[in-house]
Nucleic acid binder design. Structure first.
Lengths: 228, 228
DNA sequence: TTAATTTGTTAGTCATGGCTAACTTTTTTA
DNA sequence: TAAAAAAGTTAGCCATGACTAACAAATTAA
């Protein structure tokens, strides 16, 4: 009821906080999210976060006790999911229709996700024939906000001998995405873990007759599905 | 030089002011634009305008003497034209690809025109195969910011017996645009002025075997090309 | 050409959303 | 379990861009 109205009356900042909180809570599956953690993620001061959380609590999008951990209400979640939907649909549009590379879309989608028009995003979805995944392999929520949140298995969590398929990559860093493309990895690539080196946690991998050594940091940003 | 940088470092408000000033100065062809006129147009107080104009003067987008009329610098003009380009390209996209009606596009385009990405708008332009006019008949500036600014002849400026062709409509009011569609007028419609009534300046017009009487206010928002 | 009206300016206020510095509470660990 | 570290909170500041009220300059009209 008040639901629909509230969805459209949020500032860009409020939306950014809700989305960040959702990502930490749900997608990254952190059991508990604290104020400083959120501040870190958003690259603002803990004071700023504290301030905004207060505001979002009075608006009934966030719940938490004093000195306690943060959580989203149903309504807060719904807003965050719509932002994720918009972000991923725009990324898909940019890649599939406007010649953007997958490392160029994030920044622009961060702007586009704040455009307020239900019709715009639903029509864009229809125009692209309801795509299921964005260019980085992430699942796109449907118009009702439903989507499978798959557990994120990182390449770094695998052991020597494991074989997996690349299902998604973290879209946060341009240089990481360029690096992934450069070495020839794409979504669905089959990757074999040749060796996990104890010394520095670097991983020797094989795919398409290529052998590469990647750092732990790299492997943390690669999401996979185990095949073997 | 600093040019390119500045184009991307403006706030939404700064952009709104530059665009408004451009529209008043150039498109509406007002010889002189004053502070209060700009305030009126933007629906803010004269104090707000004064404040922002000061800021835009230090940034070298606007020039004016104290108590004098306002003018844009070359750089200010260039920014405004790019905003107009973005606005019209987005309106075209919404109408031609996303099933928006011409009375639904303005509000969304007002948001979309502030998205900062040169590539986005140039690729959108290419995707649509470089459209020349937006859904309201307005000419779309090209990537270099060039476009013909045709003198705006309003239907209200014609005399009894004149024949004209509808070339564009003011896109500012939803109810006006709906009204235009309802009575059956479209871009390129040939309109004959049957009578201009002295009493209230209402105009009796004929088009497609239809006869209608429209108010002066209506006729002010219809832009035409004289045929006869 | 003076008075009235319009236009432009300034000062001071408010909300938003950042910040730092100082403080309090909670958690960790020695 | 007490001290140290980490996490959370508060107070107070800043910039942006609105606002009103009061005032000054310029223009118009009598």
């Amino acid at each position: 009821m008040t639901n629909k109205l509230n969805l459209n009356n949020l500032t860009k900042s409020e939306e950014d906080y809700l989305k960040a909180l959702f990502k930490l809570l749900i997608e990254d599956n952190s059991a508990k999210v604290g104020n400083n953690q959120l501040a870190d993620y958003l690259k603002v001061s803990p004071a700023s976060t504290n301030n905004m959380i207060k505001k979002l609590k009075t608006k009934k999008f966030v719940v938490s006790e004093k000195y306690g951990k943060l959580d989203l209400t149903e309504e807060g979640r719904a807003i965050a999911v719509q932002l994720i939907r918009k972000h991923r649909l725009w990324e898909t549009f940019l890649c599939n229709y406007l010649n953007f590379k997958w490392d160029e879309v994030h920044e622009v989608a961060e702007q586009l996700e704040h455009i307020k028009s239900r019709k715009l995003i639903d029509e864009l979805d229809r125009f692209m024939d309801f795509p299921k995944k964005d260019p980085h392999g992430e699942i796109i929520p449907n118009a009702e906000g439903e989507y499978a949140i798959l557990p994120k298995i990182t390449l770094s969590s695998l052991a020597t001998g494991d074989v997996c398929q690349l299902v998604a990559v973290n879209d946060g860093s341009v240089s990481f995405l360029r690096y992934v493309s450069e070495i020839g990895l794409v979504l669905s690539s089959e990757i074999k873990v040749l060796e996990v080196r104890e010394f520095d946690n670097s991983v020797r991998i094989q795919f398409n007759d290529t052998t590469e050594t990647v750092t732990r940091k790299f492997a943390d940003n690669v999401f996979v599905k185990k095949v073997l």
